[in-house]
Design a protein around this nucleic acid. Sequence first.
DNA 1: ATCCATAAGGGAAGCGGTTTCCGCGGGTAA
DNA 2: TTACCCGCGGAAACCGCTTCCCTTATGGAT
Lengths: 322, 322
Amino acid sequence: MATASRALNGSDRSVKEANRARVLAAADELGYSANVAAQAVARGRQRGVTLLVKTMPDDYANPMVAGVVEAARREQLPLNLIVAGTDSSDLVREVNAARGQRAEIVMTIGGRQIGDRGTPALVSALQRYEAEGGRVVLITQAGLPFDTVSYANSQGAHELAQAMVELGYKKFAILGGYPNGMTQRDRTRGFLDGLAEHNLTVPADRIITGDFTRSAAYVATGDLVRRGIEIDAIFAVNDAMALGALTFLRDAGIPSSQIAVAGFDDIKALRDVTPSLTTVHLPWDDVAAEALSLATTARPDEPRLSVVSGHVVVRASTPPRT
Amino acid sequence: MATASRALNGSDRSVKEANRARVLAAADELGYSANVAAQAVARGRQRGVTLLVKTMPDDYANPMVAGVVEAARREQLPLNLIVAGTDSSDLVREVNAARGQRAEIVMTIGGRQIGDRGTPALVSALQRYEAEGGRVVLITQAGLPFDTVSYANSQGAHELAQAMVELGYKKFAILGGYPNGMTQRDRTRGFLDGLAEHNLTVPADRIITGDFTRSAAYVATGDLVRRGIEIDAIFAVNDAMALGALTFLRDAGIPSSQIAVAGFDDIKALRDVTPSLTTVHLPWDDVAAEALSLATTARPDEPRLSVVSGHVVVRASTPPRT
DNA sequence: ATCCATAAGGGAAGCGGTTTCCGCGGGTAA
DNA sequence: TTACCCGCGGAAACCGCTTCCCTTATGGAT
């Protein structure tokens, strides 16, 4: 048995070639496939990365997830995608499950909420997992004591604001997503800061918070228009919401020259909409690759933070304002 | 240990309430979380469904995947998404891995290729897995000896063809996807059959096969137009391709009144494009729910086949032809 | 010819659980 | 009282591997 075990997987002990061949032949003949669970028990660890996401979209793909999947493929790391649920307690549950699985690497994607009461529980679950030898990498906002890759939300939004002001826009509304979402808040703030540099502000009643979805944005834009609020541009904190806004405006027959729309993320689907959407491009594949590289290098004493920055892409949805 | 084990998970043996409470309290204090791998070894089976997909899209979400994820959540079944790769040998590898995992249910999404040399290997891997007590459900074309849910590709395309003829279209091109893909072939055939009932045909040079992607469709449509082929409508075998075609036509300034486009699937993202796309709606959530229900009911002697049918949705991309 | 390092095989002890089986105590029926 | 059954705790076997450790064989250096 010992020899067979050594022959069938990369052990550091060598097996005489003849025996290895015999083992392999027998395994093949018997259709043997290792019981991974038993391996995990014996080894005390399950190879691969467990990717925890909150939801599985049914409309637009999440480019980060796609990026991580692809990066893991390249590294030949088994990838195990778990859709946890939106609550932070769901996340805790899944982290514990991963701990029970003795997973090698746990990676989470998804923003945190400000003042989420579940955060301490999540942190301690992750710390416990780490204490038992796991590696954790967060793709989200900085601030938790783990290796993190995040992206320049506030800077990107800031630059977008600049760009839009230069295009001649003055009266903005903001579709801000969940009021407590950190990503949304950073983007909103960055945008407001960018405007502030040009002495522009956005009245509170034009900063709409709520659901973080395309449909919610559609409805919210409708409200905005119906309330007769005078605006010349809408900034949505992500592309999915921007598309919702765009579609509402189109359905209502309002052209971009009257109300422009800009988003954030530069998801692939933007290629297929009209007008093409102005947005902040983020290099999602880099984010994913960076996350994996953090995960596969030795853990440093201090948690590392890697920030990936984006850049503004001006397209047809924000024509120059004459 | 025995008592603890019985207290911590649903065993059929009862534990005195006082002891159960003590066990739970201790577990809580110690931050105990069961080693799932060890459980899998001891029980000989790992609860939950392993969902095998070929790829993870980075543009439009796969509604089937979203549906299965959601359905599994509802059933409280742990769901484990594995992105295998496009080759059928990749699928075999992952089936064997699932076998090694002693996974309870394996579900695969994704079309088969006609005459794929890997199919026998896949079938035997799945059979072996089933022989060891696993349940397999395929979401794909019928024809393999396993419980299968498939959707009415050919019927839907047939009806779409009817509808388009009624709208006044006569000269079609077809973006047919992979030449050997069964889904694509069924849809193409169904469409041609529908046309045939009205004595219409599509010359071979207007049935374009190739990549199954949005980008490939964009390029292919360009070729079609450049070759100066006279058509009044394009049928793409899925929505992603249809969107590629649509976007090309828009970029080229060709309106729907000149060349119409129809797709297949009715993915959510269609809401956000202009013109809105005519397509065949498929109830993806039903497909997913059906698959899960096949998986969780006792296995019958004969493999079951459940066919979900769709219906045509006419939208702006195929205006009535005057 | 002797010694020692090294390669390689194999027995057996885990890994962390589950489950069978045995035994004990107490309640119920005769 | 006595016999029997049932509920429940705990010892130990077992799940399918990995790996430690012991042993033997081999070959080069002295």
